[in-house]
Write a protein that binds this DNA or RNA. Sequence first.
DNA 1: TGAGTTTGGTTGGTAAGACAAACTATGTCA
DNA 2: TGACATAGTTTGTCTTACCAACCAAACTCA
Lengths: 155, 155
Amino acid sequence: MRSDDALEDALVRTSFRVMAVLTRIGSDHDLSLTQLRVLGLLRDRRPRMTELAAFLGLDKSTMSGLVERAERRGLVARGRSAEDRRAVDVFITPEGRELTDRVQEEIRAELAPFTDRLRADDRHLLTRLLDSLSDAATAHQAARGAAGTLPLGRA
Amino acid sequence: MRSDDALEDALVRTSFRVMAVLTRIGSDHDLSLTQLRVLGLLRDRRPRMTELAAFLGLDKSTMSGLVERAERRGLVARGRSAEDRRAVDVFITPEGRELTDRVQEEIRAELAPFTDRLRADDRHLLTRLLDSLSDAATAHQAARGAAGTLPLGRA
DNA sequence: TGAGTTTGGTTGGTAAGACAAACTATGTCA
DNA sequence: TGACATAGTTTGTCTTACCAACCAAACTCA
């Protein structure tokens, strides 16, 4: 037990708060956290099933179901790849994109009341610190060769 | 779309990272995120089923199953309340406590490599900023009368 | 070239997590 | 006492998630 685990604990506490917000807003639109991540990922990518599964750290069979249900709702679609006829790539539909954008706005709006309590310079500071944390995490994962478990959008 | 959503985005990104760590460590011990939260909550409380459900923002029927499985594993136990014979209160067992402590240590240890990249004064700063964010969130929730959805441990 | 292997995805089975509705047992109070 | 409210459980359904088995296409190399 290190003398100061305060930062680690604060990170965990904050993360649970944020996840609670995401879960609630997601469920308002019948989207699970995982589906939120899928849609976020597809905003600027058109990956194959396996890539998508690797990004999310999920089994490919899990991806099949996830994409299946999202496709039934018209949020994403599947297309056979031209080069490799075994492969299937997944992309977001206009409806999916529209929903994703709306949800993202809601999330930001829902988080803003908290972040707005900070003074402007503190907000910038916090952003910078969180970003450098994320960079450290990315470097760390890359070093281990762990592709998986990337979060929402890019990087 | 506000001009700087950078902080909100950074929070979401960071939270997904942290959750990924929690999920992985949890699953190493056959514990879901929710079970982690239950155990964390029970470390210093002995609530009733309904209270527990309210804390976690879950339906009481979900709690029944959750507690049932944890009880079968010997991590928690149920006791009929003396005052109200309908009520059931839940408490952690010594095994449960031991496991919870171990998992918490692992989580801290797993997060430390990232946080350690920050300079000491940045760490303190970040802790302070996150805590004031949490306080804002607590105040906000209290104001709305929303009891639910508290995260890990206390506060 | 063609048999054997690897790779990409789906299918089927199982279990947990989550909700809603129905139900049981207790408690409250007019 | 009888009507209503509260605490938990049970049952049924859906989603998420895994694993193992499977099929089809692509690769490999003897």
